[in-house]
């Protein structure tokens, strides 16, 4: 919130609530960005693991389960990796959808708040 020229525009409870909502959405947006980044890394790692698995000659590979490495036939690991990839892909899509919805709501609130307060309010980052 900027401390501007001292223009006096009345701030109502409704305005305050809009500002609160905007703040919440902005926070959520950043959290989602972080989550999406992590998910993408996870997917890349899984993809790398799958590719390595195709290249290897070993029939039995070590698959990390919790703290230990399980000796597991290549086929089973392949299945597990595919299942994980699918699960993570779905989660990623879900996060992206949520992000888009939040951006739309933020754009909407920006129109309302800028419409009322003009340059007395600053909703941009940096």
């Amino acid at each position: 919130m900027q401390q501007g020229e001292g223009n006096e525009t009345e701030v109502t409870w409704e305005d305050q609530q809009n500002i609160n909502t905007f703040g919440r959405l902005n926070n959520k947006f950043h959290e989602l960005e972080d989550d999406i980044k992590l998910k993408k890394e996870m997917l890349e790692n899984l993809e790398d693991a799958s590719n390595e698995l195709i290249l290897t000659d070993e029939d039995v590979v070590r698959y990390q389960l919790g703290e230990v490495f399980c000796h597991m036939p290549k086929d089973e690991v392949e299945e597990r990796l595919e299942a994980l990839k699918e699960e993570n892909q779905k989660e990623l899509e879900h996060l992206e959808e949520e992000k888009d919805a939040i951006l739309a709501q933020m754009a909407n609130l920006k129109t309302i708040l800028y419409g009322k307060f003009k340059d007395s309010i600053n909703l941009e980052e940096d």
Binding site: Q3, E5, G6, N7, V11, Q16, G23, R24
Partner: peptide
Amino acid sequence: LQFLRDQVTITEVTIARVFNWDVHQRR
């Protein structure tokens, strides 16, 4: 956390408004 952040925002906005009001009065 959400509740708390709302209170932070309200307080920040109030500070800005009191400050602006003061500038205005002085002018």
